[in-house]
Amino acid sequence: MRSPLLDTPGAVAGETPDDSVAAHYGDLYGEQRALAAGQALVDRSNRGVVRISGPDRLRWLNDLSSQKLDTLEAGIPTQTLLLDGQGRVEHHLTLVDDGDAVWAHVEPGTSGELVAFLDKMRFMLRVEVADIGADYAVVSVAAPGSTPGAGAGTGAAAEGVVAIGGDLLVPRDRLAGLPAELGLRPAGLWAYEALRIAAHMPRLGFETDHKTIPHEVGWIGAAVHLSKGCYRGQETVARVHNLGHPPRRLVFLHLDGSVDVLPPHGAPVTLGVGKPVEAEPEAAVEGAAEPGQLGFVGSSARHYELGPIALAVVKRTVPVDIDLLAGGVAAAQEVIVPPDAGRNVKIDPALRRRIR
């Protein structure tokens, strides 16, 4: 569904899956600064919007997903994941309960599959699931990971807009006039993505693939509650957290600023130039597209302060102090998920002897 904000002078459309919203409006760094200062609105209306109503909604979602939702207070934004039976991430939801229903937004093109799955899991419970993306659009009025300013969503929410932290769910017929209505300048998705990468926040389908588990990208805590009841995929989460390590880890990359290209999504991460062969981990990433591949680039951007940056997923055993190449661009690592993530239970050697 093409956004009407693409008709704004200077608007340039993004790339799939964000081609129906603006990547920028001709002032990339100015848009980033405005968004960081809480003075801009980012059109994310290509995202799916789902509404779940009924008196059993929170208990039901708590049983299905990774976050503790049965005691969620109205107005408190949170995140949750739906996992498959092996603990691999299938859906990432950003949501809030308004006292009558749960409102959630998800990645572009995923709401239909999500609603179909939720409908199959209703059984005899008092819940109703609706895909309302045709009626509501997502916009963001605060930088990713930040707390929105006092006026960012308060006034709008009183007029029928649902606030989920710095995100607003607004009726689509108000989208075209919303920047003027809220007194905010439009900023493109490139501005949002640059600040998201700088905030070390993964995005489903970019920093994840078909085998991603929550520990690998740092969703433990933000979207996973480690002390709640059973849900599909919990066994993997508990096993990694208590006894093992995730096979891969999310890293932040400072890219070589002298290169005029950014590595695209999926570009291979390999060992940096000039490193000795013995410094390379013992095996490449499973399914690597080229010899020596250690991981893949998730997202990259040009940040108004940090310069070219990226998020990547690499094999856990890649040393944290070596330089890498991201799609051929020299890159220095910054740790997000440490190599020793997980394995939080320490076995007392004396206890082990008694067990034997």
Rank of each mutant, 00 (worst) to 15 (best):
A199R: 08
V21D: 00
E282T: 12
I309F: 02
G133T: 06
S140H: 11
V106N: 06
L58K: 05
Y231L: 00
T270S: 15
P308G: 02
L61T: 11
D56T: 13
Q79D: 15
P144C: 06
V240Y: 04
D100A: 15
A152I: 06
R172Y: 13
E216Y: 04
D43V: 00
D167W: 12
D18G: 01
N242W: 15
M1S: 15
P55L: 12
S65N: 05
G133C: 06
S140Q: 13
V42Q: 03
A116S: 15
K315C: 02
L35V: 05
A288T: 07
G188M: 00
K211V: 09
A289T: 06
V129E: 08
D321P: 04
R126F: 08
A40F: 02
R47M: 05
D256C: 04
T236N: 07
A116I: 08
I336A: 04
E207L: 05
A40W: 02
G307T: 06
L255N: 02
V285Y: 03
K275I: 06
G292E: 15
G160A: 03
A22H: 06
S300E: 03
G292H: 11
L204P: 09
Q293F: 13
P263T: 10
I355Y: 14
V162M: 11
L325W: 03
D98Q: 07
T154H: 11
A194P: 03
A134M: 07
D84G: 15
G38Y: 04
Q293H: 10
Q32R: 04
L189G: 01
P319E: 08
P77S: 07
K120L: 09
L83V: 11
T236C: 08
D19A: 09
D7L: 00
L61Q: 07
L178V: 00
I309C: 01
P319M: 02
L114K: 12
R33S: 07
T317Y: 08
L325K: 04
G75W: 05
E128A: 14
H105C: 01
A332F: 07
L118D: 08
M124Q: 12
A331F: 03
G14P: 09
V115Q: 04
E235A: 02
S258T: 09
P281S: 06
D348L: 02
G87I: 01
V161F: 02
A116L: 05
A312Y: 08
